[in-house]
Amino acid sequence: MDILLISEYILMASLAIFAIASIRIATRKTIGMGLVGVSGLSIAVATLLVLIQEVYGIAFCRDIALALVILGPVGTIAFAKVLRGDLMLDALTIVRSIFLILASVLILLSAIGILRFKDDMDKVVYARIHILGVADMGCILALFALYNPLLGAAYLILSPFAAHAIANAFYYGEENHD
């Protein structure tokens, strides 16, 4: 074993201990404590994911780490604003925010999924169309949450036709049948 790998393992262990400590802080009763704990947890998990990619060679960990690094501070800032009393917070706002965050998670997942399969895989076009469906649903959910139900409904009806057209054209045009 070389010295770099040993130090990476030491960093991993210390990050795991720090993550557990952050979770303990986050379970305290006040919101400020929760914010401190969650922001510590997010940067710890992001660094941990980069380390996992470095040690075990799992490629897509870095994408998730990028999302965590960007989204973690943004979320912390938003909740800190709420804590200061700048933003109104009622039930409908919370529901809409949950829908938007759910949609962004789905869109990020499909962005990862559309890139990670190799081009020489069997029938990879269909896999990519399936994964595009996830992003479609995420965008429709976001459109409904942003009070544009007409656009959302129109795309809900129209998107299957587009997906079907791609698949049909590929099946009869490019794929070789025996």
Binding site: H130, G133, D136, L156, I157, P160, A167, N168
Partner: peptide
């Protein structure tokens, strides 16, 4: 066929209306 395509993970490729056969990926 439209509902099949709307569900992620299944995708209708072709529809033979007289033989009542759907090709689904």
């Amino acid at each position: 066929a439209n509902s099949i395509t709307l569900t992620p993970g299944t995708l209708s490729i072709d529809l033979d209306s007289e033989k009542r056969i759907l090709k689904v990926a």
